[in-house]
């Protein structure tokens, strides 16, 4: 198909400065990176739910978050990747580790509460993975030839124009989450005093 190739070549050139979406057919550096990161996300994700020691789970979650940040960078969204590193990898993971350290007394190993449902859960999960995988492969997604630019300026524009209202709604959502978390975490005696 000569027509297709003549279109594809200049796009390659333009994209070479910026990492592009991985293509399964060619084993270039970005697809190798993609598969490494994918193994990181999925493997660490499985580890989070299967490891018995809660601190190990938290560390696995950090690996999962980190791989996801790499994935965003690979897709040409550096600002999303940076936010992922700052917020999830930096703030949330550290908070979780602190929360575990401050609340866990003694041995951190917990019994698995849903142990007996394990085999059924595996079967159901595999069935859903199969279904979703089949749907991904057999659908024509109409992918764009190049990744849409997602630089700082684009995101800032989108957040403060198109997504201005959802942005404000999130602030209220966070407010109620904070107040609720404080209320639930406060000891009942402190409720009495606060009233």
């Amino acid at each position: 198909m000569p027509a297709l190739e003549s279109v594809a070549v200049p796009e390659r050139d333009r994209l070479s400065a910026q990492p592009s979406q991985p293509e399964l057919s060619t084993l270039d550096i970005s697809s190798v990176l993609f598969f490494l990161l994918a193994i990181g996300v999925v493997g660490a994700g499985i580890a989070v739910v299967t490891l018995r020691n809660i601190i190990h789970s938290a560390v696995a979650m950090m690996i999962c978050f980190g791989s996801l940040a790499g994935m965003y960078a690979l897709l040409g969204a550096p600002i999303v990747a940076a936010a992922q590193v700052l917020i999830y990898l930096g703030a949330i993971s550290v908070l979780i580790l602190f929360a575990i350290m401050l609340t866990q007394a003694g041995d951190a190993n917990l019994p698995a509460p849903f142990h007996r449902q394990g085999p059924i859960a595996v079967v159901v999960a595999l069935a859903i993975i199969g279904l979703v995988g089949w749907a991904v492969v057999q659908t024509d997604w109409g992918l764009l030839p190049e990744a849409v630019s997602a630089g700082v300026e684009d995101i800032a524009n989108a957040v403060f124009t198109t997504f201005a209202l959802p942005f404000e709604i999130i602030s209220l959502l966070i407010l109620v989450a904070i107040i609720g978390a404080i209320y639930l975490a406060r000891r009942p005696e402190e409720d009495e005093r606060a009233n």
């Binding site: 959802p166 709604i169 959502l173 109620v176 609720g180 639930l184």
Partner: peptide
């Protein structure tokens, strides 16, 4: 659907509480 999902969360988060 973005607003819809945020509305859903803003409704259910207080419901859990």
């Amino acid at each position: 659907l973005i607003t819809l999902f945020l509305g859903l969360e803003l409704m259910t988060m207080p419901s859990y509480l």
